[in-house]
Simulated assay, not measured.
Amino acid sequence: MADLPDTLLNGYRNFMNNHFAHETARYRELADIGQTPQTLVIACCDSRAAPEIIFDTAPGEIFVLRNVANLMPPYTPDGEYHAASAALEFAVQSLKVKHIVVLGHGRCGGIKAALSPDHAPLSPGDFIGKWMSILAPAAENVIANTLMTDSERHTALERISIRYSIQNLRTFPCVDILEKKGRISLHGAWFDISTGELWVMDKETGDFKRPDIDDPFVIPAPAAGQSAS
């Protein structure tokens, strides 16, 4: 018997019988010609906030980088191992994506860790603590605000982390140069797990707003009996 959890094997069976059966030609095309996604999404590895599901994308449509708290560290060419930077480099330099979206979400465990720096690490390596130290200056400012409730601090830092990652993206020369040439755009968004709401960051003000169905980038669903073209 194959050594995988039954839930995964059952899911794979459903995938083959349903999804793959309807998308066989697309998968074969992707296998032959390779992937050409237009968008890189930097998302959290939280199992409740999968960007492919949130944005209802087909195979090959988005290139996804997931890590704890959807963070992009600053450009640090020091010869060490940098998984996030490697994924960014591939998306920008090889795939030549036109958009980078930093997607945060509500009730993020990584953000909770950043707001509780005195808690004991989960292991001697304290990998989460080290990773979340990227946000330390912002976290300290949020923690110091005694007029905010715990939940308000949590949401505030979740959204600040998105701005932080966008700021760090611009420290990468390849991103900075292409953005200034108008060949790549940076975006921020925040997903509320409990309500399904998506809040999009305004590029000018940095505020998060719920997109309106009349916003130019939102394509209304076709009316009943009307096919999408």
Rank of each mutant, 00 (worst) to 15 (best):
D3E: 15
D6G: 06
D6L: 13
T7E: 12
T7F: 09
G11C: 04
G11T: 04
Y12F: 14
R13K: 15
R13P: 00
F15L: 14
F15H: 09
M16N: 13
M16Y: 05
H22I: 14
T24L: 14
T24Q: 15
E29W: 10
I33S: 15
Q35E: 06
Q38S: 14
V41F: 08
A43S: 15
C45T: 06
D46F: 05
A50Q: 11
P51I: 01
E52R: 06
D56M: 05
A58M: 13
P59I: 08
G60T: 00
I62K: 07
I62M: 10
I62T: 04
L65T: 06
V68R: 06
A69H: 02
L71T: 01
L71W: 00
P74F: 01
P74T: 01
E80C: 12
Y81N: 10
A83T: 11
S85W: 04
A87Q: 11
A91E: 00
S94T: 13
L95W: 12
K96S: 11
V102F: 07
V102N: 02
H105I: 01
G109F: 09
K112R: 15
A114N: 06
P117W: 07
P117E: 03
L122R: 13
P124I: 09
G125F: 05
D126H: 07
D126N: 11
D126I: 04
L135M: 13
V142Y: 05
I143K: 06
T146R: 13
S151P: 09
R153Y: 03
A156C: 14
L157A: 03
E158P: 03
N168V: 07
L169Q: 10
R170S: 04
E179T: 09
I184G: 00
S185G: 11
G196S: 11
W199C: 05
G206I: 04
R210W: 04
R210C: 01
P211W: 07
D212W: 03
D214Q: 11
F217I: 15
I219A: 15
A221H: 12
A223T: 11
G225E: 08
Q226W: 08
S227N: 09
